[in-house]
Amino acid sequence: MELETLAKLNAARQARKAAVVATDLSGGPVRLILEGEPVPGPLGQEVAKAFRSGKAAMAEVDGRSLFLNVHLPPPRIVVIGAVHISQALARLAPVAGYDLTIIDPRTAFATEERFDGVELIADWPEDVLRERPLDAYTALAAVTHDPKIDDFALSEALRVGCFYVGALGSRKTHAKRVERLKEMGRTDEEIGRIAAPIGLDIAAASPAEIALATLAQVVQAFRRRDLVTDG
């Protein structure tokens, strides 16, 4: 591979753009293909398949043996609420390779002292998510309990198809939330995707344990996410 190709690939990855690298294993050239770039012929079909499955694979094209490596944007976590659980989640997420951003308009919660070294935005989700939209490679965890802060972000996460959407709160709290999200135009199917109560059932009791259970659930959702298959 040429350094120039690698630099372009890394730039695409950092801009959260999906890319395929096609390597001719007979020692031939290495080609970088960005998502959406038209590729004609049999190679195009193989590349489309690779983008859809997200899995690297060998392919025989025109008698040549190619390796197609797929680079999908790294999953990240957006947390609504600068609460105790978020403090623990902010420490755990990087270990599992997830970048994490916390959004909370309540400046009493969103302080640098409580979230040293964490990307923290003390503003309303409505405003932040307009500038920095959620996407299919983002997990959203809403943990404020406050409809004024959580609801918009939850609705938006369901609308754009975040691979994970979790919300903190008891079943009773969640039942009321479901009604509000319906009023906001979300379908039953979309709302059914919300993980509530949040986190895998590991009998988590402390904020740190709830954070761990949530992170485990995010990993599970990412690894088991529905991939569009051929036909």
Binding site: N10, R76, P94, Y98, D99, L100
Partner: peptide, 10 residues
Amino acid sequence: TASEILDPLL
């Protein structure tokens, strides 16, 4: 960022 620290291609 977290995901970049152990990124071999970077």
